[in-house]
């Protein structure tokens, strides 16, 4: 652990050399650090007299402490082995206080699990338990283990080491950027080393998922619903470091669902999705059935269900084809 005293008297130049990520920290905190390689952090702080500190709403002691904290966080983020091989759910109680109907549920890397059950039955709560890495301290009293062990609490509180990424329900982009700038911004926040390559891959994959293609110059706010979702999924799969992806009743029109899941799995994610969509429910390897707040069953998708899935997908393609043709102004004929 690096403490405040180990950085206070170091030169800016050598600090930046050891911790290049500090430049965005200094910039974001409004510090005049450029061209000041030979000054120490302390010297720079001392130049702000009391009036100027007031003026800039700056607290040098707090900032020094936070600089050290930031360095420690980033080092942990860059070096730590954050690999998640498995996620274990240990039973809690349903809304009536009865014990849940399973002993232990182990989910492994590259597995898709769907969660089904009526509205209000507790699907989102289960996703919430996983995100919070519940330790019998949520209304369900479930325990979540990572790699078979009680996880350490950094999974709960760290911004850079997030256990789960969640695909939003009603997704809009609000930033005024084009597709490339947008992914660049995300890549930067993830400290990605080869942003150019990553950006290109994301755009290619997103275009495979979306019906209509878009380019890196397209403003994100003018993407269609399907294109936005495709970009969001490709970006999450490739750029997000979180090993678990949660999908809570996502609107999925206009994207190739099979491909989307395949992409997430090829990145070795664990995918959990609460859904009312029969195609998504059956695409999962297993599905969790929730009633009255508790997991009542865990069902492995059967061979027969897989053939039913094929039929559903066929129907889905037919609907999609008609949709495309109607949009193109055609008159439909049977067959």
């Amino acid at each position: 652990m690096i403490g405040r005293n180990q950085i206070a008297d170091r030169h800016i130049g050598s600090l930046l050399e050891d911790y290049p990520f500090l430049s965005s920290f200094f910039k974001e905190n409004g510090l005049d650090y450029q061209g000041r390689d030979d000054s120490t952090l302390n010297q720079i702080f001392e130049e702000y007299d009391e009036e100027e500190q007031e003026e800039r709403a700056m607290d040098p002691e707090l900032l020094m402490k936070q600089t050290a904290e930031f360095i420690n966080q980033m080092l942990a983020f860059l070096n730590e082995d954050n690999e998640v091989h498995s996620l274990t759910i240990l039973p809690g109680t349903d809304k009536s206080g009865e014990k849940e109907g399973f002993d232990s549920l182990v989910i492994r890397k590259s597995e898709v699990i769907s969660i089904v059950g009526p509205t209000g039955s507790g699907k989102s709560r289960l996703l919430g338990d996983i995100e919070w890495v519940a330790q019998a301290d949520t209304p369900t009293a479930r325990n979540i283990l990572i790699n078979g062990d009680v996880p350490d609490s950094t999974w709960r509180f760290s911004t850079s080491k997030k256990l789960v990424a969640q695909l939003s329900q009603n997704m809009n982009f609000v930033m005024d950027l084009n597709v490339r700038e947008f992914i660049e911004l995300h890549a930067e926040s993830r400290l990605v080393e080869n942003p150019g390559e990553v950006i290109e891959r994301i755009i290619i994959e997103a275009n495979k998922l979306a019906g209509e293609s878009f380019s890196e110059e397209t403003p994100i706010t003018s993407l269609s619903g399907g294109q936005s979702r495709a970009l969001m999924i490709a970006d999450t799969a490739i750029l997000s470091r979180s090993p678990i992806i949660l999908i809570d009743e996502i609107e999925n029109a206009g994207i190739d669902r099979k491909r989307a899941l395949d992409l997430l799995l090829s990145e070795e994610k664990i995918v959990l999705m609460a859904t009312h969509d029969p195609i998504l429910a059956l695409m999962a390897h297993r599905r969790i059935v929730i009633k009255n707040g508790g997991i009542t069953k865990v069902i492995e998708t059967t061979e027969e269900e897989r053939t039913i899935l094929s039929t559903l997908e066929e129907l889905d393609r037919t609907v999609l084809a008609y949709r495309t043709r109607l949009r193109a102004g055609e008159i439909l004929i049977k067959g």
Binding site: E28, A165, F173, S189, R190, D235, S240
Partner: peptide, 20 residues
């Protein structure tokens, strides 16, 4: 709920920069 996962991650990392 109304922005993308990427925007959430970028925003949270900016917050973390000013208050680690």
């Amino acid at each position: 709920d109304i922005v993308s996962q990427a925007e959430r991650e970028v925003f949270a990392s900016r917050v973390n920069l000013v208050n680690p």
